[in-house]
């Protein structure tokens, strides 16, 4: 008896197998080089987004905790929009928006970095805010009574503990970001996923996509390994 899955899966497996055996070594090497280059672009999007979105997230978190409505209201709106609409739409809006409104075009790559950064900053901000607000008041009071200045209290007492508290949730975001970089192709950034797709249709095989999948997976292994390492390092206290 054949079920629906087997019927669909059979040609897939066949095609994949064919893709693997039919290509010659020379093409395989070329493919790897192409995909590695794509991975370079993906990594650049990934790294630049982290570099911009983490500090921005800290600023946004502080802003959201502000008692002044003039500061915290716009930040609430910003976070709610970033988290409430699809990232792919935000990407398109940021790249094509200026074109439709002011008739100006700019670099796709820059647009992707801007879109990813402001989107991820919103998520990081909520994580950082949660971490800050989970700190017991007693820590601030003990520091104050011992004569620490406000900045000493923040940098010596509060921040190190907040870092430990936000690491697990931040790891989730960072891992999601690796996979989200594939969305950059919607505004024409040539990255790992789009190159793999192109090669796939070129040789009528899913093999290049499979290789791309392996690349993403390895990258994620490295990142999650790094986070487990940091978590373990910080595990010397509770």
């Amino acid at each position: 008896m054949t079920n629906g899955f087997a019927v669909k899966a059979e040609p897939f497996v066949l095609a994949f197998w064919k893709g693997c055996v039919c290509v010659d070594f020379e093409y395989l090497l070329k493919l790897l080089l192409i995909l590695l280059e794509g991975m370079g672009t993906s990594l650049k999007v990934f790294a630049l987004t982290l570099i911009f979105s983490i500090p921005l997230g800290m600023i946004v978190a502080v802003g959201k905790m502000s008692r002044h409505v003039i500061i915290n209201f716009p930040i609430r709106v910003y976070i709610s929009i970033m988290r409430g609409t699809p990232l792919i739409l935000q990407l398109i809006f940021i790249y094509f928006g200026p074109y439709y409104i002011f008739n100006v075009t700019y670099d796709r790559f820059t647009a992707a970095i801007i879109a990813f950064s402001i989107n991820y900053a919103a998520y990081f901000a909520e994580i950082f805010r949660g971490g800050m607000q989970s700190m017991p008041l007693g820590q601030y009071e003990a520091a104050q009574v011992l004569g620490y200045t406000k900045s000493q209290t923040f940098f010596r007492i509060i921040l190190p503990q907040v870092v430990k508290r936000v690491i697990p949730a931040s790891a989730n975001e960072v891992i999601t970001l690796i996979k989200d970089t594939a969305l950059a192709q919607t505004i024409g950034v040539i990255e790992l996923f789009s190159l793999a797709q192109k090669q796939s249709s070129f040789i009528f095989s899913v093999m290049p996509l499979f290789v791309a999948g392996v690349f993403y997976y390895i990258l994620n292994l490295v990142v999650s390994g790094a986070f487990s390492f940091i978590e373990k390092k910080l595990n010397y206290y509770r």
């Binding site: 017991p136 007693g138 009071e141 003990a142 520091a143 007492i157 503990q161 206290y237 509770r238």
Partner: peptide, 8 residues
């Protein structure tokens, strides 16, 4: 009352 030592 609850010590408030610095855990780190």
């Amino acid at each position: 009352q609850n010590f408030n030592l610095f855990p780190h």
